[in-house]
Each structure stands twice: as C-alpha cells, then as structure tokens.
Design a binder for these strands. Structure first.
Lengths: 212, 212
DNA sequence: TAAATAATTACATAATTATGTAATTGATTC
DNA sequence: GAATCAATTACATAATTATGTAATTATTTA
C-alpha cells in the first residue's frame, strides 16, 4: 500500500487526484493540502510514502516546499506536478530534492505508474530533463577533472598538505622526520612547480587544482 | 535525416539495427562497426549524429569508447545499448558522456523514438537510472552546501582572497587602499573566526568551506 | 541616545618565511 | 658505469608574518 499526500491549490485537480488514488488498489490518499504551509506543519505526523506537489503554489512555492519537507523528513519521496514542462523549474525542483515529476495532463494509468516508480526508488522524468540533469552532473564533476596539471611528488604533496593544515616548517619537519631545511627545499620546489611565491597561493592553487 | 552509426560486436544485432534504421524514413545508417577501435579511427571522417554503442564490447569497452569518442567529437550523441539494465554500468556510461541508453530488447518503434529524442537533445533513460543520476548530482553539490559556518565580513573575504592570490600584506594594503596595519588587523580577525594561526590554514579552510 | 559592530590606524617585536647557493645519497634509467 | 632524478641536509639573511595592546570613526541596532 502506497500512502500518498497531495499538495495542490486547485480544488478540482486535488480532489480528482485523491479520487483516482483512493479508487485504486494499493494506493491510499493520506492527506490533501491546498498549500505548502499546511502540508509542512502536518508532515511530521503524516504516514506518507509519496507526495504529489504542485510546482506553482501560492505562498511557499513547490520548490521551496520540497526543500523544507526534505529537512523535516529527508527520506520522503516527492513527485512534482507541473502544467507545462518548464525545464528550468523542473530542474530546480529536482535539485531541491524532488524525485521526479508529472505533467498534469498525464493519463491516470501513467500517473499511478509514476507514483509506483517513485515508491520503488525511481525518478520518472522526461528525456529532456534527464539530459539537463546529467549535463549538470557532469559539469559539477568536470571541475575536478583538470587536476594534475602540475605534478607534485608524493613528498611534496605531504608537505603542502601539512602546510594547509596550519603547520610551520618545524612542525612539518618533525612529522615527516626530516630536517627543517629539507622542508624548506620541498617548499621551494613546490613554489617552482606551481609558479607561486607564497604559502597561501600554493595552498590555494593546490586545493583548486585538486592536488590536495 | 538522422545519421546513425552502430558499434556492436554481434553481427545479427548490428545488421538488424542497420536494416531497421535504413528502412525508416528520416534515419540513415552511416557506419557499422564490430568494435570501438575501428569506430574511433573512422570517427573523424564520419558525418554522424547519433551513435548506438554496445556497453559490453571486446577490446575497448563501450564506456571507454564513449570517453574516447567524446574527446574526438565532443558534441556527438551516444546512446548505449545494454542487454540487462545493469545500473552501475549504465550510470558509468552516462558519466563518461553517453546521452542515454536502450535495452536491446526495446521494440523497434521505441528504439527509433529514443534515437530521435537523443537527436533532439534528450536523454532517454529509465526512472531507476534517473534517480541514481540525480542522487549523485545532489551529492556532488551538497559538498558545497556546508558553507558559511564561519561568517567573514566582506572586507575580510577580500583580504583572504588576495592572500590566496599570492599577495603579501603590503600588496593587499595597496590594492584595498588601506594601511598595512589594517590588513594585519583583518587577518588577525580572520584567524580568530576560522580558528587558525597561519595564512595557509586560513586559505585552505576558506576554500574548503567555500567562503572564497 | 547608548551600545554594538565593522573598518580603520598605530606601534612593537619575536618568530617565521622566501630565496640563494651547494652538496650527499639512493634509486632508476640509459 | 654514467646520467638523471627525488629526497635529503646545510648555511645565510633580508623580508614577511603572527600576535599583543590601544585608539578612532562611521554605521547599525536596541
């Protein structure tokens, strides 16, 4: 049995969805709300698996609603409802923590299937939105991909790591069981390789280039 | 007209796909390959919009193949073919740059539709995989979300930014039109707020906490 | 209006860093 | 066996930083 809550300001649509859900074996409506605020205050005491939430709501928007709901119940699954497939809003909603979305004109059978998919750990979405998501995902990873442009030796990495940890030359020497002069030497080389002249710049560059 | 290339080691499947594509108005097969290697060497001279690529290939795997193909033609759209919907492999393929995937038993009409979706900028995938992608995406963003635990004033941020850029106190003073003593003072406060005692540690913390 | 806050300047000094030059050792490569 | 390279140590010193104490000004908040 999938417990469904509905947050939708349009009375007709809300009641229609409730009727569909309650009229189908395996699905039960456990809460109907006309706005996010009233949904959020009840959420704690609600035994709900999947929430259908309108994106365009008066007061707190559906996107903000997702964020708040996730704070209260991090594991809750929220399926967004939209009239038009506005890529940007849907994308924002997914970033906020929504699990997928439905356009409101989705036929009943598809709608029930989508709810089930969400309940089973899926994220139903159109291929257009999916492309936006994977593109954004790859970009967020690609930032990390321009590393190793500057090749520090493993010893040098140890040294700069300790520097970034707030150690001075003497402390680094003690921890690596080498002399302060050796530390000095490594740092000189690090500066050369990174083309910098201060600790701070070296550390900044090393972190940003993902060397450390 | 959508130009399609096929990389698939099974002769029957490859020829079958080619027949389907060439037999459909608006689609044309522009290359059939039994392995990635031969596909990659031809890619430069190939006028292709969408590539169908088997994930499990002898030699260079389909996932590696995607990476290489993207290096040669970054804008190429690649649709993976899989027998089973092995979440991990499909996910890896998407990370490598694939645009979506098809299970091999997909009916012809759906297959042609998926190719068209990719051609039009979509990423057809199952809702299960979609969930994996948005989860991974959110995780990669959430790292950035633990910021502002330490509130630096905007002036202090300017100062630490310049520090991270390799400037010494005098240079910072000159750039901000303040005295060196003021710079000193700001840095003292930054150290207090970040609980550190060296430039390097301050810069490291500021970058990692996304303050700068 | 008083209190709090951010930004500013000043002086002092011990500790630390940046940079140069030079040599030794062990491991790997040619 | 010579050459290369990473890691190591050493000495020297001018420049820079870390830290303390103390005061002024302008803006915001209570």
């Amino acid at each position: 049995m999938i417990n469904v809550a509905i947050v939708e300001d349009n009375d007709t649509i809300r009641e229609g969805l409730a009727a569909l859900i309650n009229g189908t074996t395996g699905y039960k409506s456990v809460g109907l709300f006309g706005d996010c605020e009233s949904f959020l205050v009840k959420l704690n005491t609600l035994d709900v698996n999947v929430v259908l939430m309108d994106i365009a709501l008066p007061g707190i928007s559906g996107i903000e609603g997702v964020k708040e709901a996730k704070k209260i119940k991090p594991d809750i699954d929220i399926l967004m409802l939209t009239i038009y497939e506005d890529s940007e809003k849907v994308f924002d909603a997914l970033c906020a923590g929504a699990c997928g979305y439905l356009v409101k004109k989705t036929p009943p059978s598809k709608l029930l299937e989508a709810i089930k998919e969400v309940y089973e750990g899926g994220s139903p979405m159109s291929s257009q939105i999916a492309r936006q998501v994977i593109t954004a995902f790859k970009e967020s990873k690609d930032v990390k991909a321009d590393k190793q442009e500057f090749e520090l030796s493993s010893r040098e990495k140890e040294v700069i790591n300790l520097l970034a940890g707030g150690n001075n030359y003497q402390q680094i020497a003690d921890q690596l069981f080498i002399s302060v002069d050796t530390v000095r030497h490594h740092i000189k080389n690090i500066y050369k390789k990174l083309h910098v002249h201060t600790q701070s710049e070296a550390v900044a560059k090393a972190i940003r280039k993902k060397i450390i």
